[in-house]
Design a binder for these strands. Structure first.
Length: 724
DNA sequence: CGAAAGGCTCTTTTT
DNA sequence: GAGCCTTTCG
């Protein structure tokens, strides 16, 4: 098979440029995944590079799986030695192998968000603060921001400039101590620790640098600083780094992804070859045009000319339903209609939305009409209480110092060890600076002088739990994973316990489902299967479970939809407050990201796109009138099939009560501005107003900023501050 | 000790 | 509307 044959000139250029750094800027549907796959295949087949010397990073495990499939076909053989996976999965592997030198226990467990939050609450308390006063989520986010910039607690404390930052620094410090004590890492640690490992151990870094002759990174626009640094470190020796991305599809800034990575790449690798992929193979002309009109409003963007040879296609359908129930009903009916007249199959259709909560009304409608659907939320399964309980037992077997897991299940099923006794134990453990499990061991030693003040009955219960755990730990040395899991279920009496809970049957089904997942690991040696399984279930991403072969409509968030494509796409909730989300209202940059999100959604569609909204929507208990998303207004009418409803929108915008105004943070008072006024902008700095005029129901100022030039800014969005 | 009920807050996107 | 926490009662 000729690997270059089926590529267009630009794609071919991107594949053949194997020497030195390459930046591929690729529009939606321009075949970037294809370019990566072909490039790897080209390296292996044509250039004779061993797969062992190639590392390719994808955004999800699913993308990695698909890449493997594609490659196996392209090179007609196995690519087993290839390093392929998400940053997190790859880093976890590196740390298990080489983490010892920075005191990462190879038996570490990975904490998910829920575990992280529990540990954080504990850390907040332990530094003498009240978790109610310092929202653990806000602190979690601040710590994550720090880690994505590779800042240690000490760095944070040193540079803290406010009381909150100091609090973050102190909590962060304790949080890391507790993680270390329990041999646990959070998601961000996986990345940051590898960077630190490489920094402190040049010989280990050299090993990886020498091994990886070629580095490839997909979805580069959504990488953050640690990830950039990792790529830089690993690729430093050969500099054969190929990154692929699209600034217009950058939608993860809240995870500290930084678009500036693309600019840094051009700066750090001045010799980089830059390839533009602008031909779209996915969508009809009209879909592409709709999308372009939406995205071109963004100010912070390099204009890009996307084009396609595909047919003109259908008009964009804009629909207004009365309520969210009717919105869902419209989608279901329309799917049935399309499937009925043979225009599409169930699997061709996807419904996309901004927030997970929106899936509910949709699910109900699909269920009521008996239309098969699949909800993309793989991680949701692993968040279920019963599933997490079992995983906690398994984690405890792998690493008994994992106190979060221990506290989760020490009394599940009930063993008569209550909250009071547990805080006694925890306090005692903390005083001795040991994990709970070690404290448990000591507390149940009858000959010990200094015992925690516990009731003998409780001590007996604790000893029983300890004995159970020790036996399971021993069992892990000779049983395979499923045998071990069965042994957990049997020894704990979990089945009887869960069946007595509300929805017991369903929950037990979930446990059995988990057991099915575990079966994939039975071939591994005792112990190893457990490690691999625990890593697998923690690093799953939502789309990983998406199975294209199932004939059902896909319900998916806009974020999850990145990288996917469907012949028919419905985007629901096209309303102010939802898309764009109201959290972004007072920040021009975030607003641009909302727009990109909308763009990502539209460009998933191959043949048909529906933009749907509800006139009434209930949120937070309240029902409110909505107004159409501003993004709808950017689509020229010649591209829209006017469902009659759309025509009357203009007057509605004026009349509609802006339901979100009540929730929205107090409107930034827009200053009266005239030409010559000096203003300050959070991003552009100080500038001078050139002009200011009324537009629709807003005012638009044209301001010149030094270093940025002229900017058009809507006063309701841009946080302009008048300065004297 | 444990279950149940009531009250509170916060509502985005996820590896 | 949900999840989390606290309170209350058996």
């Amino acid at each position: 098979m000729d690997i270059l044959a089926e590529l267009n000139p630009a794609q071919r250029e991107a594949v053949e440029a194997i020497q030195g750094p390459v930046l591929i800027l690729a529009g939606p549907g321009s075949g970037k995944t294809r370019v990566i796959a072909h490039r790897v295949a080209y390296l292996i087949k044509v250039c004779g590079v061993s797969p062992y010397r190639i590392i390719a990073v994808t955004f999800t495990n699913k993308a990695a799986r698909e890449m493997t499939d594609r490659l196996t076909r392209l090179v007609s053989g196995s690519v087993g030695d290839l390093t392929l996976g998400t940053f997190h999965a790859i880093c976890a592997r590196i740390l298990r192998r080489d983490g010892r030198s920075i005191s990462v226990d190879p038996k570490f467990v990975i904490y998910d968000d829920e575990d992280q939050l529990s540990l954080l609450k504990r850390s907040i308390q332990e530094v003498g603060l009240d978790p109610k006063q310092y929202a653990p989520r806000a602190i979690a986010s601040a710590i994550s921001a720090a880690k994505s910039r590779m800042l240690t607690p000490q760095d944070c404390l040193k540079r803290s400039r406010s009381y909150f930052e100091e609090v973050v620094g102190r909590v962060y410090e304790r949080y890391q101590q507790l993680l270390a004590e329990g041999s646990a890492l959070d998601f961000d640690d996986l990345l940051m620790k590898v960077v630190l490992l490489f920094r402190n151990n040049p010989e280990i870094l050299a090993k990886y640098q020498t091994r990886y002759q070629h580095v490839l990174v997909d979805e580069f626009q959504d990488t953050n600083l640690v990830q950039y640094e990792l790529v830089r470190q690993i690729g430093a020796k050969y500099r054969n780094i190929c990154v692929v991305g699209d600034p217009d599809q950058s939608i993860y800034s809240w995870r500290f992804a930084d678009l500036r990575n693309i600019l840094s790449f051009e700066k750090d690798y001045p010799e980089a070859k830059i390839v533009f992929l602008e031909q779209n193979y996915r969508s009809t002309q009209r879909i592409l045009e709709t999308a372009s009109n939406v995205i071109s409003v963004n100010q912070q963007r390099k204009p890009k000319e996307l084009w396609t040879d595909n047919e003109e296609g259908e008009l964009t359908t804009v629909v207004e339903a009365y309520t969210e129930m009717e919105e869902a009903q419209f989608v279901v009916n329309e799917v049935e209609r399309l499937v009925g007249n043979g225009e599409a199959s169930l699997g061709d259709c996807a419904v996309m939305y901004r927030t997970n909560a929106q899936s509910r009304a949709l699910e109900e409608a699909f269920m009521r009409y008996g239309v098969p659907y699949k909800l993309v939320a793989g991680t949701r399964f692993y968040e279920r209480r019963e599933v997490k309980d079992i995983i906690a037992y398994l984690r405890l077997i792998q690493n008994p110092n994992d106190s979060i897991s221990l506290l989760r299940i020490i009394n599940v099923p009930q063993r008569g060890i209550g909250q009071r006794s547990l805080s006694e134990l925890s306090g005692w453990a903390r005083a001795k600076n040991i994990p709970e499990y070690q404290a448990l061991k000591m507390a149940t030693e009858p000959e010990l002088e200094e015992l925690p003040p516990l009731n003998p009955r409780i001590v007996r219960a604790m000893a029983g739990f300890l004995k159970l755990t020790e036996e399971l730990i021993a069992a892990n040395k000779k049983l395979n994973l499923v045998e071990l899991l069965d042994s957990v279920l049997e020894r704990t009496g979990y089945k009887e316990y869960v069946l007595n809970q509300p929805n017991g049957e369903e929950r037990w089904e979930n446990v059995l489902e988990l057991r099915t997942v575990a079966q994939d690991y039975t071939d591994l040696k005792p112990g190893e299967g457990l490690t691999a399984f625990l890593e697998g279930v923690t690093l799953v991403s939502d789309v990983d479970g998406l199975d294209e072969s199932v004939a059902a409509v896909t319900l998916i968030t806009l974020h999850q939809a990145k990288g996917l494509e469907f012949p028919v796409v419905f985007i629901v909730g096209m309303e102010e407050g939802l898309l764009p989300h109201f959290k972004s209202f007072d920040d021009a940059e975030q607003m641009e990201e909302e727009r990109r999100l909308c763009y990502v959604g539209i460009t998933r569609a191959k043949r048909r796109i529906y933009l749907v909204r509800a006139f009434h929507r209930s949120l937070m208990g309240r029902t409110g009138t909505t107004i159409p998303s501003r993004f709808l207004a950017d689509i020229p009418s010649h591209l829209v099939s006017s469902g009659g409803l759309w025509a009357g929108e203009e007057s509605q915008i004026a009349e509609a009560i802006y339901a979100w105004d009540k929730i929205r943070s107090p409107a930034v008072t827009t200053p009266e501005l005239k030409a010559g006024d000096h203003v300050r902008h959070p991003q552009f700095g100080d500038g001078v107003v050139v002009n200011c005029q009324e537009v629709k129901d807003d005012r638009e100022a044209i301001v010149v900023f030094s270093g940025w030039g002229l900017k058009k800014l809507l006063l309701s969005l841009a946080r302009l501050e008048k300065i004297e």
